[in-house]
Design a protein around this nucleic acid. Structure first.
Length: 211
DNA sequence: CGTTGGATTGGCT
DNA sequence: GCCAATCCAACGC
């Protein structure tokens, strides 16, 4: 029995390392312009904190990273590698650049629409990566700074929080600076978790850090 | 102003 | 497993 009530502002107004694991099991919901609502269960997320050399907020505040410095509970979307959009949830408070990167979802509703956008058939191929989930849900710069608490185009529902025993953690994917921090969280053995990259823990048996 | 490399993906070996 | 694609932000000169 999942709850569709949205997560409140106070949920996001905390350190990203606290918010990230607690986002697992929650539901990212996206209402398209045609009214169709797409939903996915969050199964993987990474924290980026103030003073974190891997974070976009590590340097000065710029037009690109501005949303990270703003109030919590908003969506921060950026473009990278020439092709991909990344969706983040802003945490902490004003002037404290921090966010949680949404890395993978398990499609719940609207998977047919996701298949069209992704041009893939298998459910596990729709949202098993940060760029993929943005393509599947139609997330781009137009949604950056959108308020997840009050906005009508994208929000996060309570869902069913993952039990602490089901949560695994390890180093973040694709970062060089700050690679020592175990700030990537995912639901153990979930088939929708991204397969990671070279140098990152393998999907099924990551460095078994904690649980 | 030129260079470097990235919070990635998908296709090929 | 390896690597090209693709472009923009950051940084050096």
């Amino acid at each position: 029995m999942t709850t569709r009530a949205r997560l409140p502002r106070r949920f996001f107004a905390r350190p990203a390392v606290e918010v990230a694991p607690e986002l697992l099991g929650r539901v990212l919901a996206r209402r398209l312009d045609d009214g169709n609502v797409l939903r996915g269960r969050i199964v993987e997320a990474e924290a980026y904190e103030p003073g974190d050399p891997a974070s976009h907020g590590f340097r000065r505040r710029t037009a690109r990273n501005d949303v990270m410095f703003g109030p919590p509970g908003r969506l921060y979307v950026y473009f990278t590698y020439g092709n991909h959009w990344m969706a983040n949830v802003v945490t902490r408070g004003e002037g404290e650049p921090s966010a949680v990167l949404l890395r993978a979802l398990e499609p719940i509703t609207g998977s047919d629409e996701m298949r069209l956008r992704r041009r893939k058939d298998r459910a596990r191929d729709l949202c098993d990566g940060p760029g993929k989930l943005c393509q599947a849900l139609g997330i781009d710069a137009d949604l950056s700074a959108e308020d997840l608490v009050r906005g009508s185009r994208i929000w996060i529902e309570g869902g069913i929080p993952a039990s602490p025993e089901a949560v695994a953690r390890g180093i973040r994917v694709g970062v060089s600076a700050g690679a020592d921090r175990d700030w990537r969280f995912w639901i153990r053995d979930d088939p929708s978790v991204s397969r990671g990259r070279p140098g990152a823990p393998a999907r099924r048996h990551p460095a078994r850090s904690s649980a």
